[in-house]
Every structure is written in C-alpha cells, then in structure tokens.
C-alpha cells in the first residue's frame, strides 16, 4: 500500500478533472470543466448561483442522478467515475454537504462508528473497538466544541445550522480523508458559527490533504485562505488565480464573467 501511495504522490495530482461534461435531466450543467488539485493545496471555487459549483461537488462524490457525458475524473490516478460513492469515501474523498440530512433513530455516535469502521474494513484495516473509538471521538469532538449530548442525539436531528456544519467537520476529522470538498460551508451560518467551523477546517490542513472550498461569497475565504481561486460561470472555469482573485470578485462582482462564459 505504501508503495503505491508513494507512487501516485510523486507522479500525479490528487484530483484531476478533465473536460467534464455533465447532464441532469437532459440539460447540460457542466460543459467541459477542468481542474487539477495537488496534495496540500486549498482551492476555492466561486461563482454565481447556477454556475454548476454544487453539481461538480456532487459528481465527485458520486451522487446519483447525474449523467457524465464526457471527460473524466482521476483520483490518485484512478477512474473515480467507475467507483460507487462508498468506494470513493473509502479511497479518501469526503464531501461536506451544504445541507446535511437528518437521520432520526440513528444516534450520531452509532453513525460515526459504523461509518469509520466500514471505511477501515473496506481498506483492510482493523475496526475500532468501542473504547478506542470513544476516546478518539471525544478528543476530536472536544477540539470542535461539540458536546457529548449532541452526539447521543439522532444524526443532525434538531441541530442548528452551525451544529450541522460542525458535525460535518467532525466527520472530516475522524475519517481523515485526503480530499475534502466543502460545499457552501458558510450558508446559513452567522459569523461566530462560521469562525468555529473555519477553525475546525484549518486545523485539518496538512501537506497530505487537499481541500476544495465551494462558496458564493468571498467572506468564507477570509477564514479559510485558499492557494488558488477559480471562478465558475455557466458550467466552466472561466478564470483562475491566487487568493487575490477572490478580493477582486468581491469588488467587481460576477457580472463580468457571465458574458465571458
């Protein structure tokens, strides 16, 4: 395992999206999108509503209902589109949902342990026993200010917007994925909740891990500072640059790119 891991690291990018074309219900949403993400990098994807940002995140995670009509997605050099959503998670893809679902009747603790052990089992690693799991979870939850009684409730049931997002970050910290996609993490959060969530994300920055931060607003990028910013419009990346591009957008808006696309 180590050998192959080393190989992809040296030879290729973590994520390569090449000329991706995607349809939903006969309507093309992405018209040839390309994006390359290397380990350790943080990419921000910005763009107006309807530009295809969330579609990109869903297709990478393997959500049903999207038809890929052209292009490819390679993850660690492997064809991601051939994998089921759970295989992708096992390989290290993590999508932090814009709207995390509520699962009544499944406690958060039970869900986290089941998911973590499913991933470990699929990778041929030993499953966590309850005491070891609880120890690990307590330390991660503590660092994110997540009280234990919240973890005893049904997954996201009755959670505030901020709690739901923190629960997503908690999972990110537990599962230790190599690619994190944060879909509109700032939606529905006030400034304090945003800061807590961003601190959680920043704590997970690592040279081995890449992040793709999808956002409509520049505000989030004050807290999670990206290495690269891509502007999407009408299903394509129309401009890429450094973090200063986000500030530029804040000043001038997306209108200029609507015409360019």
């Amino acid at each position: 395992m180590l050998g192959t891991r080393h190989k992809w690291k040296k030879m290729m990018s973590l994520l390569e999206v090449k000329d991706l074309q995607v349809r939903v219900d006969e309507r093309e949403i992405l018209h040839g999108l390309s994006l390359t993400v290397n380990p350790g990098e943080i990419h921000a994807i910005m763009g107006p509503n309807g530009s295809g940002k969330s579609t990109l995140s869903h297709v990478i995670a393997g959500k049903p209902g999207y038809e890929v009509t052209g292009g490819e997605i390679l993850f660690k050099g492997e064809d991601l589109l051939e994998m089921s959503p759970d295989e992708r998670a096992v390989k290290g893809v993590f999508l932090a949902f814009q709207y995390p679902v509520e699962i009544p009747g499944v406690t958060t603790i039970n869900f986290l342990r089941t998911a973590l052990n499913a991933q470990r089992k699929a990778r041929g690693e030993a499953e966590f026993l309850v005491p070891d799991f609880l120890k690990k979870m307590r330390s991660v939850a503590g660092s994110l200010n997540i009280p234990m009684d919240m973890l005893k409730r049904g997954v996201n049931v009755g959670f505030s917007g901020g709690e739901k997002k923190r629960n997503e970050i908690l999972q990110m910290a537990l599962f230790e994925p190599s690619l994190c996609i944060l879909d509109e993490m700032d939606s529905g959060l006030d400034i304090d909740a945003l800061r807590v969530a961003a601190d959680g994300v920043n704590a997970l920055r690592s040279p081995d891990r890449a992040m793709v931060v999808i956002t409509h607003y520049q505000r989030l990028l004050n807290y999670i500072v990206p290495d690269f910013v891509h502007v999407m419009s009408k299903g394509r990346v129309v401009k890429s640059g450094g973090k200063e591009l986000a500030l530029e957008l804040e000043a001038s808006g997306y209108a200029q790119f609507e015409d360019a696309a």
């Binding site: 995670a61 992708r88 998670a89 949902f97 869900f111 991933q119 699929a122």
Partner: peptide
C-alpha cells in the same frame, strides 16, 4: 439519506 451514508463509506 442513503446517499449521505454511502458518501460516508457505508456500502
């Protein structure tokens, strides 16, 4: 709900 769980690694 199924997609959410599968995106977390459950078959």
């Amino acid at each position: 709900l199924l997609f959410y769980l599968r995106a977390r690694g459950l078959s």
